[in-house]
């Protein structure tokens, strides 16, 4: 394994991570809820009375984050190499499986590990493992799809 020192951003990543942790902290302490994006978004598909507002507010905050960012600075690079067919497949797979697995990188990875939840530790191990395997297959075995 060789570390890509050019790409590695330890300080901004730690700081950004702490902000993500702060957001999850504020959400659980103020709203009493888990900041799990797949669950928050997924719940909008079967709206129950009084249950959609907070979901839309949270999602609205996330989507408008780049706009608030633009008030202070230009946006960081967002490089999406996957082509459209691949994005459709990836989106479908992420949508179905995060609902079956009851969470994604935020709900299991950030909140679940912070709660020391056994389910989330297993889930995070599982999606990291298959994430590593998938990228290995695409980049090093199939010659890049």
């Amino acid at each position: 394994m060789t570390i890509d020192w050019q790409a590695f951003t330890p300080w901004t990543s730690l700081l950004g991570g702490a902000l993500i942790g702060l957001a999850a902290a504020a959400f659980v302490l103020l709203n009493g809820r888990i900041a799990g994006i797949s669950g928050i978004v997924g719940g909008l598909l079967t709206p129950k009375k009084g249950d959609a507002g907070w979901r839309l507010a949270f999602v609205g905050g996330m989507i408008t984050a780049p706009l608030f960012w633009l008030l202070a600075s230009s946006l960081p690079v967002i490089q999406i190499d996957a082509g459209f067919p691949m994005l459709v497949v990836a989106g479908l797979v992420v949508g179905v499986s995060t609902r079956f697995g009851a969470g994604c990188t935020s709900g299991h990875g950030v909140c679940g590990i912070s709660r020391l939840s056994p389910r989330s530790l297993i889930a995070t191990g599982a999606f990291m493992l298959s994430g590593f395997a998938t990228v290995f297959i695409i980049r090093h075995l199939s010659g890049g799809l």
């Binding site: 978004v41 990836a90 797979v93 992420v94 499986s97 995060t98 697995g101 999606f127 994430g131 998938t134």
Partner: peptide, 18 residues
């Protein structure tokens, strides 16, 4: 299985929901 599946979709494009 859901989490394993999520990792596959994540690795395909580098996107997770957030």
């Amino acid at each position: 299985l859901g989490s394993l599946g999520f990792g596959i979709g994540w690795g395909l494009a580098g996107f997770c929901p957030g």
